[in-house]
């Protein structure tokens, strides 16, 4: 009873973490030594980056518009509508932009990576690759890590910019706010630190998306149903990991800010 409730799941979790860590370490080693298929970068850059632009633009725009409408509404009876711009910008840059972009990329790219690799695993294509002297990490995994690392900060910046634009559009066109009132506090209060936080968070989330998707995909078993299970587990694990790491990164970045610039 105790074994089935506590010990077995704990052992399975430790096994999962161990295998995941081994995979990530080996892939990083391949990337650092340049021992992977560079020719695979272009298609993955296109798939992860270019083909996701429309989605992240739309998402950023929609969230920015809602944030602006809600901020204006909530702040109007307190006479603080001038803070609408800075609320939208700060929220989009340090929190909502990275998290939401990562969620969208998990659904569009992470799930696809897991399903593709899972399908290759259960139809022995991964074994065939290995038998031909090509390590699947070199060909299938490492190029995806590099492509994600290059594209996700760009996508997050684009989503954040679209969010700010959407916020301005609603504030100025719907509520008649002067553009200067919307943008002036942004120029004053948004610092490089916010942009660095945005990029750092997106890099961590991108790593979680691609590493978890590849891990679940390459360990899929049990035919089409197994691939489906692996994809679902991959997406759920990624979402939970992003939320957990977002909290930890926020605490860390705040503490770092206070350490560098002092507590105000």
């Amino acid at each position: 009873m105790i074994q089935s409730i506590f010990i077995t799941p704990l052992l399975n979790m430790l096994l999962f973490i161990g295998q995941y860590t081994i995979m990530v370490t080996r892939v990083f080693k391949m990337i650092v030594t340049g021992r992977f298929r560079w020719s695979q970068l272009t298609p993955h850059l296109y798939e992860i980056g270019v083909r996701s632009i429309a989605l992240v633009c739309l998402t950023g725009l929609a969230i920015g518009m809602v944030l602006s409408a809600q901020s204006f509404f909530q702040l109007s009876d307190k006479g603080l509508t001038g803070a609408t711009g800075i609320m939208v910008a700060k929220s989009m840059l340090v929190e909502i932009g990275p998290v939401l972009t990562s969620f969208m990329i998990t659904g569009r790219v992470g799930a696809a990576i897991c399903a593709e690799l899972g399908s290759m695993r259960v139809t022995e294509q991964v074994d065939a690759m290995f038998s031909m002297g090509v390590h699947p990490y070199e060909y299938l995994v490492a190029p995806r890590y590099v492509s994600m690392a290059l594209m996700i900060p760009v996508l997050t910046i684009i989503a954040s910019a679209c969010g700010i634009f959407g916020g301005w559009f609603v504030a100025s066109n719907l509520y008649g706010m002067h553009s200067q009132i919307f943008f002036a506090p942004i120029a004053l209060h948004v610092s490089w630190y916010d942009i660095i936080a945005n990029i750092l968070k997106s890099l961590v989330f991108g790593f979680l998306i691609v590493s978890i998707a590849c891990f679940y995909g390459l360990n899929a078993k049990g035919g089409a149903a197994g691939v489906g299970r692996a994809t679902t587990s991959s997406v759920v694990t990624t979402y939970v990991s992003i939320l957990a790491f977002n909290f930890l990164l926020t605490i860390f970045l705040n503490a770092l800010y206070w350490y560098i610039f002092g507590f105000n």
């Binding site: 290759m120 139809t123 294509q125 065939a128 038998s131």
Partner: peptide, 14 residues
Amino acid sequence: AQIGMLFQGSALFD
């Protein structure tokens, strides 16, 4: 690398 294997389901890359 000097071993070649033909898999049951052919295992061609889709």
